[in-house]
Design a protein around this nucleic acid. Sequence first.
DNA 1: TAATTGTCCGACCGATCGGTCGTGTTTCCG
DNA 2: CGGAAACACGACCGATCGGTCGGACAATTA
Lengths: 210, 210
Amino acid sequence: MTTVDGRLARGARTRAAVLDRAVAMATEVGLDGLSLAQLADALAVSKSGLFAHWRSKEELQLATIDRARELCTEQIVAPALAHPRGVRRLWALHEARLAFYADAVLPGGCFFASAEFEYSARPGPVRDRLVAVFREWLGLIERLAEEAVRAGELLPDVDVRQLAYEIEGAGLAAVMQSRLLGPDAYPYARRAVLHRLRGVCTDPALLPEA
Amino acid sequence: MTTVDGRLARGARTRAAVLDRAVAMATEVGLDGLSLAQLADALAVSKSGLFAHWRSKEELQLATIDRARELCTEQIVAPALAHPRGVRRLWALHEARLAFYADAVLPGGCFFASAEFEYSARPGPVRDRLVAVFREWLGLIERLAEEAVRAGELLPDVDVRQLAYEIEGAGLAAVMQSRLLGPDAYPYARRAVLHRLRGVCTDPALLPEA
DNA sequence: TAATTGTCCGACCGATCGGTCGTGTTTCCG
DNA sequence: CGGAAACACGACCGATCGGTCGGACAATTA
């Protein structure tokens, strides 16, 4: 066992606290709308102290994206992977996503939905990283769908990209409508994917009733 | 015939030009990220001149939302209403929406998708107006679906709110994915709604093939 | 103990933000 | 012709923006 450097440990702790707060605040005011002074105030640290950890706002934004990705992996992907491979895991991913929104883990709903729209027309490293994360996310849905096909739980002729597109669309609409109109959106998001999966699922017993 | 007041006419002309530009720029940098100085520069007018027409940035933002709604009505809703009532009109609305995105009428894709995510966690008059416009839009989809049911072109037991939710989700995913990943998203958005409508349509001949 | 390293701070910088004010110009009306 | 009205301008305001700099403080290493 190696003794940890107290200085480095403190720095890592501070960085984590800053990034957690940055992720949350970014869902409210945007990743670019995020002000370093406001972020520092919210954490009771000095603004210049932030520059000891990130050399510019853009570096902090990139680190914030990475932290949001981690959070997303912990809270959505990991719980879904706990379910058995196949259509149940695919369904679990969608439900875990909706639960993440409904539980208000982040005040603004979804970090990536907000940030991706914000940067959809703003070229640069931030946009590039957001695109990469989104590709990863869409690829995950496709992979789970593909696994379900290989497991024989989805019809062999199902278009997994098409299916992934529709699941992603249902989830995206959920975070937007739940924030604008209220939680009534969640049942619609559930039924949308549930009906779609039932239509291509070989064993209806693998999916919930309602 | 009454002669128009040249002063008022000039004011109206500049207001229209400013709002058109504001709508376009807002899709790139956000409705809040929009800077009055940048907007004025882009139009070769003075910043203070803007305050002669709107007393504050928020007033201009509200006017910009109204202008974006008009644009949306002209370019998407009106063309759809040219189609015969029923499932064809509902389908035409979805296609007109996708065409609006694909034709890059606005540089950032969709004014409302961007603005609604931007303000989803920011209470105030701007958010309220965005919510109202979105309710209107979702209500339009539902009404067209309801008309299709009454026309006997959709099965009588179809849940129009559910259907509207899924159509909106497919369109929302289209604008986001087309901006992030490229125009490949449009065929997915088309097929998603086409398959869904085919599943509840009484006469398949009313819908296109592909 | 002395030098070094990592963390964090307060003071400060130029640029830009939304917004105000006084003025000039054009157009309409009496 | 002269006043009123609407539009538009440049100069200017305090606040905030991202970012820099020199130094204080604590923990490590030699």
